[in-house]
Computed example of a mutant assay.
Amino acid sequence: MDAHGGRRSQAERDAVTVEIGYALVSAAFAAAVLFGAVAGPALLFDLPHLLSTVLFRLGLVVAPLVFMARVISVLLRFRWQVRPGRPGPGS
């Protein structure tokens, strides 16, 4: 938004849209990789039942946490980069 409280330009709206898409895609990738690293051995190998269950459930708990942390960190970083008085994306 400009300094007088006006509407955002099309370029600013496009930058926000791209940043949200990037945040979601990179978060999904990070969560999938982490889930695969934690729960993968439980799915690929014949581990004891208790260990297999713990690894799988740990993956199910940690992956969404990583997803949310990634989305929040990307969007907050973008927000701080576009503060008034500082050059934004494409400047």
Rank of each mutant, 00 (worst) to 15 (best):
R13T: 03
L44E: 04
A11V: 07
L55S: 09
G59R: 05
S52D: 09
S91Y: 08
A28W: 02
A3D: 14
A3T: 08
R77H: 11
A23T: 01
A42Y: 09
G59N: 10
R79H: 11
L76Y: 06
I72K: 05
R7K: 10
M1I: 06
V61K: 05
G5Y: 02
R8N: 03
G59I: 05
T53S: 14
R79A: 15
F35M: 04
L51M: 14
V82Y: 01
A32W: 02
R79E: 15
F29M: 08
L55T: 11
V71Y: 01
L34W: 04
R57Y: 15
I20W: 02
A69C: 00
R86S: 13
L43C: 08
G36W: 07
G21F: 03
G21A: 12
Y22P: 00
P48K: 05
F67Y: 13
V18I: 14
A23F: 05
S52M: 07
H49K: 15
Q81K: 12
I20R: 13
A42R: 07
M68Q: 05
F35Y: 15
I20D: 02
A69G: 02
L75Y: 01
T53M: 12
S52G: 15
E12A: 13
V74T: 05
A3V: 12
W80E: 11
V33P: 01
R70K: 09
A27D: 00
L34G: 04
D2F: 05
F45R: 07
R79K: 11
A11K: 12
L51R: 10
V33T: 11
W80L: 13
G90M: 03
L47N: 04
P41H: 02
G36A: 03
V82P: 01
A15M: 03
S73D: 07
A15E: 13
T53A: 15
D14C: 03
Y22M: 07
S26T: 15
A63M: 02
P87F: 10
A31H: 00
P64V: 00
A31E: 01
E19N: 09
R7Y: 10
M68L: 07
L55V: 04
L75G: 01
R7P: 08
V62Q: 04
V82G: 00
Q10H: 08
M1N: 04
L50V: 15
S91M: 08
M1G: 11
V66W: 00
A32R: 02
F29I: 14
E19G: 01
Q10F: 06
A3M: 13
W80T: 09
A27I: 02
Y22Q: 10
A15D: 12
G6V: 06
A23D: 05
A27R: 01
Q10D: 09
G90Y: 11
F35K: 06
L43F: 12
A27K: 00
L76F: 05
G21W: 03
V61S: 09
L50I: 14
T53H: 13
R70Y: 01
S91K: 10
